[in-house]
Write a protein that binds this DNA or RNA. Structure first.
Lengths: 154, 154
DNA sequence: TGATTCCCTATTAATTAAATGGGATATACC
DNA sequence: GGTATATCCCATTTAATTAATAGGGAATCA
């Protein structure tokens, strides 16, 4: 149940591209993203390639090349980023939640796994890159983060 | 964002113990749990040790020994099981969600991570072992699993 | 006493995660 | 055309984690 470095780096790089899009600039190089966010450059390059293959960004080579978002920052969700770099959300022992089959005492377990994935989706598939940069997060998400113990460990 | 085999095995073993508790029996051996749920026995033993150290079960050695739940099945949540065998929910690159620190474009990201963890908690910390065995899951959880596309991949 | 069953440490094998290196390919600008 | 820039791509490395197994010690009961 962890967010990988890959995913975290991907999101932070895309937030740089979002910022650039808002400022009206064209492309941003891997190097400047790595510097701005403190990410290992070659590792970031590999991640950006995944993002490109996933259709989230476009790129241009050459002297004034770099990357930019493929589409509007307000249309790109964190969920799509996670899926592009780390695969499906909430897999259970390598399988999709609804495909985990059990019998006997555990027969109702898939319902729980599906609900768990659905609850994760209510956050990751509702928050866009633009939301994160502006801090104007969906009411539902702010509500979750405003719960009494949300910021405390259990 | 995955559920490990460790966690899945732990839950399935505990569901066997829940069933035994409901039937009024005393202890269940690791071997019979492994057989009933099709789990590797020695691996299961290691997991049961974690569960014991986490205070979720008790054990007795010897010829009619075995394991039993420490407390009522209706009081033990899936969240406590996950924490006992796999550590904290929803860590971000090895740190707690609220401890991930960023500046610049990513400064609002911790709010998202905390909200994500909160949403996971609304499922895992609300569902008990008894709920799963009986299939009588909390309304909130059933609601999530009843959403139109909850059972479909994205 | 002997069978049973948990307890515990160590080890292994496979996979994944995180990163690095080197170089080929495309682009812009002088 | 030449050169600097920057993506693209493959191969390799290192470390950590995951999943599982092995072997035997310690407690318990009949």
């Amino acid at each position: 149940m962890n967010i990988s470095a890959r995913t975290e780096y991907a999101i932070r790089a895309l937030l740089s591209l979002t910022s650039a899009q808002m400022a009206g600039s064209t492309t941003v190089s891997a190097e400047s993203m790595a510097n701005a966010q403190g990410l290992p450059k070659k590792f970031l390059e590999a991640i950006l390639l995944d993002l490109k293959r996933g259709g989230l960004i476009t790129s241009r080579r050459g002297s004034s090349g770099g990357y930019q978002l493929n589409g509007q920052a307000g249309q790109i969700t964190l969920g799509s980023v996670v899926r592009a770099v780390d695969g499906p959300l909430a897999e259970v022992r390598g399988a999709r939640p609804q495909d985990a089959a059990y019998d006997g005492d555990a027969s109702h377990l898939p319902v729980v796994w599906v609900a768990l994935r659905a609850s994760i989706r209510t956050v990751l598939d509702e928050v866009t890159l633009l939301d994160v940069v502006t801090g104007e997060l969906p009411a539902h998400v702010l509500g979750l983060a405003d719960q009494p113990d949300a910021w405390r460990n259990r």
